[in-house]
Design a binder for these strands. Structure first.
Lengths: 169, 169
DNA sequence: GATTATTGATCAGTATACTGATTTATTGAC
DNA sequence: GTCAATAAATCAGTATACTGATCAATAATC
């Protein structure tokens, strides 16, 4: 492709590349980023007042299901790298939502538990969180929603190994 | 090595809520976050050596198509809030990929242009970027890919207004 | 038992993504 | 023409997400 950075070069762009450039807004990665932004917005709107983010909610849900899971395991369970997970958990600990305990069998390990306050928040957020997830795929017809979720599962399972923080089940 | 949660705590959870909690990994928002992570990984892998992120590539593509677009317009065009956009552009300017110019018709406005180096990078990244996007939905059958992209368009268009940084076309 | 390797956690650094406040320039109302 | 409202950009602060390095505890090897 021949081009300088002068403004009037657009007209000279070759056809295929221009078409590709114009498709910016329809590339898979672009739409995935947008849908992620949209979901986070919907989640924060539905759960306003709790000041809990989607990832924080995922962590809290997982800890509720497996109390005492350590930070390493938690990260692998929900697909968050250890550094990020440690940050999020530290923030929630400061707010008395979670509690960390040094494991007796291995002093390197920090086990995570929900506090009563954390459990209360989790319970109260159940419905709003459900609504946020539902609203994210609401615009699809009912059949389309199942197809979409099935496709998402296929893609995330296939791509899991390529992710920097794969989910380990 | 690490002990799991005590089973009796799980058993105490009420049935519907436990089912909901166990579905953590299948909630729409969770899978969208995961797929976003996966795409970014694939993109950075395919485009390694350029040190350009997906969002940076989107901005560069848009500036290539519309040289002189200002920061406000750019943010709206690709769905990035003004603060984030200013950060990204500042970073790319420091690396001599983009260039900012104060508009003559309005001294508040900063117009953005690609440098020659930026245009070169954009050209060279065209194929790897294309591959990254293709690989993101590669695991679906060909028919499924079209359906999936169609659903993504529906959802992002419907959710656009709910996003904090809606795309303005 | 001492040395080496591995592992969990943390720290420093960077990037996207947002909020709310502030600064500066322009526009609109009077 | 002046003053208020608006708009573009920036700044400060927070959160997710990652990399690479470091540290301390454990496990493996000799």
């Amino acid at each position: 492709m021949k081009n300088q950075s002068s403004p009037d070069i657009i007209a000279e762009a070759s056809e295929p590349d221009q078409a590709w450039t114009q498709a910016i807004l329809e590339r898979p990665g672009f739409l995935i980023r947008r849908l992620h932004q949209i979901h986070v917005s919907l989640f924060m709107e539905e759960c306003s007042g709790f000041d809990i983010t989607p990832v924080q909610y995922s962590i809290m849900s997982m800890v509720s299901l497996y109390p005492g899971k350590d930070q390493h395991e938690l990260g692998q369970a929900i697909g968050v790298d250890r550094a990020t997970l440690a940050n999020v958990v530290a923030r929630l600990e400061k707010r008395d939502v979670l509690r960390r305990e040094n494991a007796q069998h291995d002093r390197r390990v920090k086990q995570v538990f929900l506090t009563q306050a954390g459990q209360d928040i989790l319970d109260q957020m159940s419905e709003p969180a459900r609504r946020a997830h539902a609203r994210t795929i609401e615009a699809l017809p009912v059949k389309g929603r199942a197809q979409f979720m099935s496709a998402m599962k296929t893609l995330t399972e296939a791509g899991n190994i390529h992710s920097r923080a794969p989910v380990k089940s």
